[in-house]
Every structure is written in C-alpha cells, then in structure tokens.
Simulated scan of single mutants.
Amino acid sequence: MPDRDAPLPDRRTLLLAGLAAASPALAGPALAAEQPAPLTDLPLVMPRMEFVYEAVVEIAPLVPLGESPLGERRIVPITGGRFQGPRLRGTVLPGGADRQLVRKDGVRRLDALYEMKTEDGAILTVRNRVTIDPGRDGAPDYRFSTIDVTAPEGPHAWLNRLVLVGTLASLRPAQEAVLVRAFRLA
C-alpha cells in the first residue's frame, strides 16, 4: 500500500525517470547533472513509430561530380528495385538518382529523388534526405533520414499525410543496392 503522506516526485524527477526508462544509455552521468526546469507543465509524450515499408533500391556505380566549397559532390543513379509494407508493395522505377555531398568533416548528406509504382499502378514520388555520420571511436555509423512521399489521390493518398523517418543500409557486396526502411511517426 503506498504511503499517502509521502511527498510526490516533482515534474523534473518524473521526466528524468521517463527518459532513463526510454533510453537507458542516457541514464548515466548526463542525467546526474543539474537540468533546467521544464518550460511548461504539459506532459512529455514521446512519439511512437510504425513500420510503413522497406525498399531494396538498386543502384549504378557512383559518378563523381567534383569538389565544391562544401565538399565532394557525387551522384548515384537509381536503376530499379522493389518495395513492400503492410499496406502497399510494388517496384522502384529506374531513372531516379541519389545526389550526395561528402562534407569536409566526413559527414555525407544524401538527397535521393525517385518514383515507386504500386501493384495497382499508382506512382509514388519519394524524396529521401539522409545524414550519414561515420562512427568515430568505435561508435556505429549514424544513418537516419526524413522521407517525403507524394501519392496521387486515391487508395494511397494516406501517405501524403504522414511524417516519415527512415534508416539506410548498404546491401553490398551481395547486391548493388541499398535497403531503405520507412517508419511513420505516430
């Protein structure tokens, strides 16, 4: 039975406990440091993610475009592929491309624009902006993206109302392709 006379924890303590539960890696010394007071009394609600689709995007060899003041520019043609998820599936159409900038600090910024055709014939336009930070000091690579999908009116119009985030993984050397996984923020 809880002690009714015990003081209730303050909002900061509850927030930090929730953060520690959601991300144990942050529960160390970073949480022990004094944190600023919250700006409002609104509860902190962490977004959830729901899987939308994964795509195997086939690619051609990289084409260097030369150095710029911001870093090395290059392009990777998209030659095809396939995608599927709980509510859609189809093929990645050839003709798109992934424009890349390798910054002076080693971070790669990718901006891919391509089309996917669903089984029922709808054409989806996908813009996938990826940040890749190579792991340093034994840390894994950071490979996350924001994905915009534009769908025609009809059965796939629900895609126009989503905020999508994604992951990217190379399928080399087994296949000249990358794996894109898209998740809806909910």
Rank of each mutant, 00 (worst) to 15 (best):
P29M: 02
A32H: 14
P36R: 12
A37Y: 03
P38Y: 10
L39E: 14
L39S: 15
L39G: 13
D41R: 08
D41Y: 06
P43S: 08
L44W: 12
V45P: 02
V45F: 06
M46G: 09
R48H: 12
R48M: 11
E50I: 02
V52P: 09
V56M: 11
V56D: 04
V56P: 01
V56K: 11
V57C: 04
I59R: 11
I59H: 05
A60W: 03
V63S: 12
P64N: 09
L65N: 10
G66R: 11
P69N: 10
G71V: 06
G71M: 05
G71Y: 00
E72R: 13
R74L: 15
P77N: 04
I78V: 15
G80Q: 12
F83T: 08
F83L: 07
R87A: 15
R87V: 10
L88H: 08
L88P: 01
R89W: 06
T91W: 06
L93T: 07
P94F: 05
G96I: 01
G96H: 06
A97E: 15
D98K: 04
Q100I: 06
V107I: 14
R108F: 04
R108A: 13
R108H: 13
L110V: 08
A112Y: 05
L113F: 09
L113A: 15
E115L: 05
M116E: 08
K117D: 09
K117H: 02
T118D: 09
E119N: 07
D120R: 14
G121L: 00
G121E: 07
G121T: 03
G121P: 02
A122S: 14
I123T: 14
I123F: 00
L124N: 06
R127M: 07
R129E: 08
I132N: 12
I132M: 14
I132E: 12
D133I: 04
G135C: 03
G135A: 08
R136H: 14
D137V: 02
D137G: 08
D137Q: 10
P140T: 01
P140K: 06
P140Q: 02
Y142R: 13
F144C: 03
F144N: 10
I147S: 07
I147W: 11
